[in-house]
Amino acid sequence: MLTFTLKRLAIGLLCLVGVSLIIFVAMRVSGDPTLLLLPDDALPEDRHAMRVQLGLDLPVPVQFGVFLENAFLGDFGNSIRWKMPAMSLVLSRLPATLQLAALAFLIAAVFGLLSGVAAARLRGTVYDSLIRFVMTLGLALPVFWIGLMLIMTVSVNMGLLPTSGRGTFWHMLLPAVTMALNPAAALSRLTRSSMLNVLGTDYIKLARVKGNSDSRVVWKHGLRNASIPVVTLAGIQLANMIGNTVVVETIFAWPGTGKLIIDAILARDFPVVQAAICLIAAIYIGLNLLVDLLYGVLDPQIRY
């Protein structure tokens, strides 16, 4: 277990280095940062001085080494736009994003699981078809469109919830629901098919033979087995959700990392982009590790 975790952490660290390389290359390709840092009419000598100061006169591999070293110390340079350390800027916005993602994941997991189990138990009835139809549709709805439609109907027309910003729980509800929709649909579909597989097995029949009630059969004997593939998907969905915060936070003007990233990209504020993407990749890798460990808890046959 410990060796497995350590091994996975090492691989994750390698992946992070890879991610930083991608970011580094992307930054190099996108052009000379001094064009952004200095006014258009700056003197060539000033430009050169700036390049030396930023280390851009060194050979490219050395630059990457320096970048990597600084990155591991959490130093991604200063934000061009906000004139403050990029990482601390990103970290200051992180809680808002995590809060949103947590609520969205909770909604998605609860709805996905309940509706998936319900559809499996009602297999072959109209309710099953209805749930499946709604979930197939839910999977096809683009996040940004759902967000706008919800704002339009719930906030603007009915005036029930605030349209944007962060403050009360009610501010969080619409963006969270928006983000939860796709994952809920995906989880529901997989839960249903996984649960149906499980409900057809002999050990479920034996549970019935023993005299278990229907709901105990489903929730105790079925769910844990059925949830093994679902957990993988839930991990992927949670990770995707963190990506989707970029879109959702833009629509709802939610002051989190996602909005920061898109603002930074549009303003070519590369230190911030790098810091944010590295941080998100680290979270992403951590989540994947967590999913693998959870696997071991759910399925006794897996021993690390």
């Binding site: 029949k205 034996l206 087995n225 399925d299």
Partner: peptide, 13 residues
């Protein structure tokens, strides 16, 4: 039940 290999629940002791 017929199949002993399949009729025990894999996730419980």
């Amino acid at each position: 039940l017929q199949d002993p290999l399949m009729s025990l629940n894999p996730v419980f002791t």
